[in-house]
Each structure stands twice: as C-alpha cells, then as structure tokens.
Simulated assay, not measured.
Amino acid sequence: MHVGLGLSFQSFEDELSDAQVWANAVRSSELAIELGFDGVWATEHHFTSYDITPDPLQFLTYIAALDPNIQVGTMASILTWHDPVRVAEQISVLDVLSGGRLILGIGRGLGKTEFEGLRIPMDESRERFIETTELVLDALETGVLKYDGKHFKQPERLLKPAPTGTFRNRTYAAAMSPDSFELMAELGVGLLLIAFKSWDETAKDLVRYREAFAKFNNGAEAPGPLVSVLVTCDDDSERAEKTAKKYMGNYYRSVIDHYGLNKPQNFSNVKGYEHYDATSKELGDEGDEGVDSAVTEFLETHVWGTPEDCRKKIEAIREKTGCGRLLVTFASGGVPMEEVERSMRLFASEVMPGLKTLDTSAVSVG
C-alpha cells in the first residue's frame, strides 16, 4: 500500500503567518522523506487561511526536487478553476521534471468564495469540470490539445513537453456527493475519498461507482480508491483521544464554516450542488447542536489512538473501501508542529511498515 503524507496549509484562526504555514509544510515534507513515506500530497485552495495552497503543482515541483524517489500528488487540483491548456502544460512539466512521479488528483470545487474570487460561475462548475477534465486527460494521453465544447473550444496544438507516460492509472477525482461517483466513473478515473461521512455509507457509494465504471468502460474493473484521513498517533490512548477531539474537531468546524455547510443560501438553487443544498438546510435547521453532532460523526471516520488503534482503524477502512493508496494528514485544526512531528514519527515506526506490506489487490469489497 502506498502511504503518502497529506499536507494541511491551514492557519487555524490565523494563528500562524502565511510564511510559517508554508515553512511547516516544507518541514513536514522533509520529515516524510526522512521517515520513508511514499509520497507528499497537496491541496488547492484560494484566498483564505482555511488552506493556503493556490498552486499545488508549483509547490510539488519543489518537493519532487528534494528527493529522487518521493512521489508527489495533488489532492486535488480543481480543474474547474483553470484554463485547461495551461493546467495541462503545468501537469506535464511537473511530470517530466519528476520523471513520472506525479499522481494526479482532480476535483470540481465547492467553496463559494473561491468561485466568486476566481470569477467562475458556480452553477457552471459541473459542465466546466467535465469539459476541462476531458480536454486535459485526453491531452495527457495523446499529446494533443483539442476540444470543441460549450465552454472551451481549443484549436489543435501539441502538448509540450509531452508527459512521461499514461495517466490512466494515476488519476483520481475527489467525490463526495452521490452524483459525483457516477460522473467520475463515466470519466474513467479513480476515486479520491476524503473522509466526511461514515465508511458504511461510502461503501454503498462505491458499489454504485464500480457498477457505473464497468458500464462506461467496457466492463473494466474500477481501480481501488485513494483514501485521505486525518491521523493522531500517540502511545497514550487518552491523550490521543483528547488531541483528536480538539484539533480534528477544530478542523471540521472550519470546514463547515469555509464551505458554509450550515448556510442553505450558499447552495440554494445552485445547479450541480443539490446534495449540499439538502445537507446545509439540515445543519442550518439544527443549529449548534447539529454542528456538534456532525463533528462527533466526523471524528469517527478518522484515525486516532495508539499505534495498534490506528492500525486497526486503517485496516477497517481498507476492508470497506478496497483502497490501494492511503493519505494521512497529521496537521489540522491548529495542531502544534512539535505534536505533528511526534505523531508522524510514531506512525512511521509503528504503523506504516505493516501497511506497506498489505496486498491491496487481495481486497474484495462491494
């Protein structure tokens, strides 16, 4: 199993300067290389301290140069927000410079403030995502940029530099709403699962995804998903629980606030976001009590405890999802850097060796 470090560039409640956030991300990446993690992964977000990563491909180019073996990945590049020609070129440049070590995670975006700031109509996001994804993935596969769509009409040009090889088995798309699972199957990409609901619910979504994948891809078997979780690993189980509840709780409250998941007006009548409209209305109606309950449920989907606790929770997630790659994030919701390092070191020495020996092809689910 690939075990990658998922980075958080959050300055929770603006406690850190932007420069310090990035210094911590670089330090965490260097430590991941030292400890034997397989990859370093970065998100894409704009304009706020929720997550300060406007250009993950540029950041990962720097990380790829630190070590000749470390893989790098996006979790995810929001293709909806980009000119497809330029982002295809940026992806290909990083792939060439890293010698084919890039794993591409893509998404269509959810943050209203980001859509507005980037001047992209949010209710066009699904259409734009499909067109951009088709154009980019086809160009990465064929070396030719060409498309005739509603939003993008691209005259035929060569993609230079050409990527090192196919992205067919190294492209994943973030999916949370039920409709997104079928869309990603139709696009022929793997799934990047970011833990925001119970793994039992996700397992049901995966059954539909695998059925749709076979339908749209000539009976081909869907790849195992890439799973992203928050982790707190500690020799003391009580301290681990206290740390997780505080900082993972902080993080999920910041998620609710950033995306306005308890503000129905953010998604009301926005095409393509009907799932979030229903969720936001429910959370909005329930008030603080609903948010508290959502935070409690969120904590149950993530990984915290002693090394043995962490191992068991990850194995349970693997059994429900069949994941072949795992991304673990230690910095979230204001966790002090010294705690991040301590948790990473313990996880790397006591949990990660066993995960790397797992035969992911042997997992059968759904």
Score class of each variant (00 low, 15 high):
Val3Gln: 03
Gly4Glu: 11
Leu5Ser: 05
Leu5Trp: 08
Gln10Lys: 02
Asp14Ala: 06
Ala19Leu: 13
Ala19Thr: 11
Trp22Arg: 06
Ser28His: 02
Ser28Glu: 15
Glu30Lys: 14
Asp38Leu: 04
His45Cys: 13
His46Asn: 08
Tyr50Ser: 02
Pro56Phe: 10
Pro56Trp: 08
Gln58Cys: 05
Thr61Arg: 12
Ala64Ile: 03
Leu66Met: 14
Gln71His: 13
Val72Tyr: 04
Ala76Trp: 04
Ser77Pro: 02
Asp83Ala: 00
Asp83Leu: 01
Val87Asn: 04
Val87Ala: 05
Gln90Ile: 00
Ile91Ser: 06
Val93Met: 09
Val93Ser: 00
Leu94Ser: 02
Asp95Trp: 12
Asp95Pro: 06
Val96Ser: 01
Leu102Trp: 11
Lys112Trp: 00
Thr113Ile: 15
Glu114Asp: 10
Phe115Asp: 07
Ile120Thr: 14
Ile120Gln: 13
Met122Asn: 01
Met122Cys: 07
Asp123Glu: 14
Arg126Lys: 09
Arg128Cys: 04
Phe129Asp: 08
Ile130Tyr: 05
Glu131Phe: 10
Glu134Lys: 14
Val136Ser: 03
Gly143Trp: 02
Gly143Met: 04
Tyr147Asp: 03
Lys153Gln: 14
Gln154Lys: 09
Arg157Glu: 11
Pro161Asn: 07
Ala162Phe: 11
Pro163Cys: 08
Thr164Arg: 10
Thr171Lys: 06
Ala174His: 10
Met176Ala: 04
Leu183Trp: 14
Ile194Cys: 05
Lys197Asp: 12
Lys197His: 07
Trp199Ser: 00
Trp199Ala: 01
Asp205Thr: 05
Arg210Phe: 00
Arg210Leu: 01
Lys215Ala: 14
Asn218Ser: 14
Glu221Lys: 14
Ala222Met: 05
Ala222Leu: 03
Pro225Leu: 07
Leu226Ala: 08
Ser228Leu: 11
Leu230Val: 03
Val231Thr: 13
Val231Arg: 00
Val231Ile: 14
Thr232Phe: 12
Cys233Met: 08
Glu241Ala: 15
Glu241Gly: 15
Lys242Phe: 04
Lys242Pro: 07
Lys246Ser: 06
Tyr251Ser: 11
His258Ala: 13
Tyr259Ala: 10
Pro264Ile: 15
Pro264Gln: 12
Gln265Gly: 06
Asn266Leu: 14
Phe267Arg: 06
Lys271Asn: 10
Thr279Ala: 13
Ser280Gly: 13
Lys281Asp: 12
Gly284Tyr: 10
Glu289Arg: 09
Val295Asn: 09
Thr296Val: 13
Glu297Trp: 01
Thr301Asn: 08
Val303Tyr: 06
Trp304Phe: 15
Thr306Pro: 08
Pro307His: 07
Glu308Phe: 09
Asp309Thr: 04
Arg311Met: 11
Arg311Val: 01
Arg318Lys: 10
Lys320Leu: 12
Val328Lys: 00
Thr329Val: 11
Ala331Val: 00
Ala331Leu: 04
Pro336Asp: 03
Glu341Leu: 06
Arg342Cys: 00
Ser343Asp: 06
Glu350Phe: 02
Glu350Ser: 10
Val351Cys: 01
Met352Tyr: 00
Gly354Cys: 00
Lys356Glu: 01
Asp359Glu: 09
Asp359Leu: 01
Ser361Gly: 15
Ser361Thr: 13
